[in-house]
Design a binder for these strands. Structure first.
Lengths: 208, 208, 208, 208
DNA sequence: CATGAATGAGCGTTCATTCAT
DNA sequence: GATGAATGAACGCTCATTCAT
């Protein structure tokens, strides 16, 4: 019975978390009321407090969840990719082209903003979170360099920052252009830009 | 305190505007109270309403001011540049390297977020504002193409979107790395990426 | 305090309504604060909003309640009366002599004033409400005429207006004379005035 | 120079008074702001305080002015009338038919309400004011009785109360029927009602 | 004297949080 | 364990009143 209960508890927690994420995204963090969050999770307002001790903690949980899911997603992509460069390309494609969950988009940006505003109030460390993702990108880049897919002369860390920066920029861009731009073509151009850093066709490249 | 000069009135308006921008950036839009804004501008809370009829209008003013100053800045840079490509480079440099007014940064992101949430409530049209900046970048790119500084095969509009996306991404990145990264070097790498799109007049270009 | 019976909820609503009516009457509509209304109803100010969404709506409810109770009262009197003229006499007696709920009195006048100032803001249609009462009086007068109790030469509608006008006048008069005048005798004189309009079947009527 | 100044002061006081009366009528006593009153009197908000020490005092002045003008009006009518009954008839005609200054109407009712609510806060005594008017009506009635125009058997005081009550009722009625009713005919009917109390045509009347 | 910018108290209203049921 | 009525602290905003100019 204990297990069933735990399942229920987990399901509840998850329902609340999702409801909160959705409402934070749509109405803003302080614009979303506990009442609304509860309603959308089919609970009473007071019941939330059995699962999260405060709105702040709920916010933290949403943040952590968003971060975790994002990292997980990228790792999954990386694992299934046929090569480091393919992994990077697929991540890029997902960010530029496939990702279209607007609530998720907005939520990520809000979390980043909030984390930047209350660096310590919120228990989460934005710097560390980002560093983790940057590290992952950097590792992929290095592997691609070792595999001869990217010019070894490039500073892997710097390129990782650029890719991460672009990732965040795309999120912001999509804020008001869910469908207005030819993202596919733009992404291809971006690939071309990164590709321009690839190993130069010709033996002379290898010298660099 | 009657018969105050227009200059004093303008100074007050400006002080309130700046105080508001600062607090919106630091505490968030709904986190910043009129009382705090007033305190920081050395006024009573009620006095603000002589200059701005509501918090909403104050917010609009802050946003408009940020937008205007940003556009002005880019135009100034473009005018002083020695060539279209130089203009793009200087804008890039400002975005990546020089811009370090954190409040301004946060404010811009918040503006985008708010505008995305209440598309019409806020008087500011995010889409239009961004389109304006995109148009400016696109024009510069075309000029650079005509001047033979960028490959004519590149779609100017697509590249403009990428540059703008990067701009926004850099803003987000700087949210938690005011000084933590070697932005200078990263920027140079980015320039190199864009430069890779330069005029392809033969293989020797690549090497140069 | 959940799982409260509907009766409790209704009782609360009613307590708030009464408290509001009392305070609107005593301090005026804008003079009465939600805090005071809440105090008198043994609630916190914020709790009122669970029952009435705004002060305005509370006001509307008070007005509607007053109107309804008034109409009901007159209909009850009319139904129990032994004749149309008796009904009119009893209504008159109630208005002139029996009615002494000062808060109710003030409330009615305030309602009229408010409705006159914000013709459409308030949901109550004063004109219509009054027309209803006028119509009822007019009907009674016609019945009395048909029964030979009032001269058929009299315009029923005009007399109805006079009676209604008197009703409102009595309300105003009582504003500062709860007990100062010999209302009973005055009322009898008024009855005599109306009686003077009785059926003129010959000079002997006058003497009777 | 002193006289000119005094004239100015009086003119200002009067302008403020009228502006206040108008705005109290249109927006209610607490709905009218000192700023608006000042604007309508072509003054600055602060300047009012040179003439009236507070909003409350201004209100008192408006009340007194309304009362005085009303009494004056009735006295003027009485003086010009050809007989006591004519005076009563003319007053009645003015009240029922001629008076159509809505702001004045509303203002009178508001003052009565306010005076009834804050019997002592407001320096004015509603009871006394009304007693004065009642006394005037009573005197006219007695004179009419002495002149044989009204039956001597009628209690003059009681009739005075009825007439005054009607006066107030007409004010209230006109609140939402500025032009909707055939007031002329209604008034004639009312005259007929009062006339029914007149000396009975026939020698037998005199006996009563 | 008049001005009108400034104050400060207080209003209606909202909402995270608590707790009797 | 869940409910939802209640609280209380704040918020945005208004306005009578003051007073430096």
């Amino acid at each position: 019975m204990a297990r069933v209960t735990q399942q229920h508890v987990d399901a509840r927690r998850d329902a609340i978390l999702r409801s909160a994420a959705r409402l934070f995204a749509r109405k803003g963090i302080s614009g979303a009321t506990m009442q609304e969050i509860a309603n959308e999770a089919d609970l009473s307002a007071g019941a939330i407090y059995r699962y999260y001790s405060s709105k702040e903690e709920l916010l933290r949980a949403v943040f952590e969840d968003a971060t975790t899911r994002n990292e997980q997603l990228f790792q999954d992509i990386a694992e299934k990719a046929t090569s480091p460069l393919d992994a990077l390309a697929q991540i890029g494609r997902w960010v530029w082209v496939e990702q279209d969950d607007r609530d998720d988009l907005v939520c990520q940006i809000q979390m980043a903003l909030k984390a930047a505003q209350d660096p310590e109030d919120l228990g989460v460390d934005l710097t560390q979170t980002r560093e983790a993702m940057r590290g992952m990108l950097e590792a992929l880049i290095r592997q691609a360099q070792n595999a001869g897919e990217i010019d070894r002369g490039i500073d892997a860390r710097h390129l990782a920052v650029i890719l991460q920066t672009t990732t965040m920029g795309v999120q912001m861009m999509k804020l008001d252009h869910p469908t207005g731009l030819d993202v596919e073509s733009i992404f291809e151009l971006f690939v071309q830009m990164v590709g321009g850093l690839g190993p130069q066709t010709g033996e002379n490249e290898r010298r660099g």
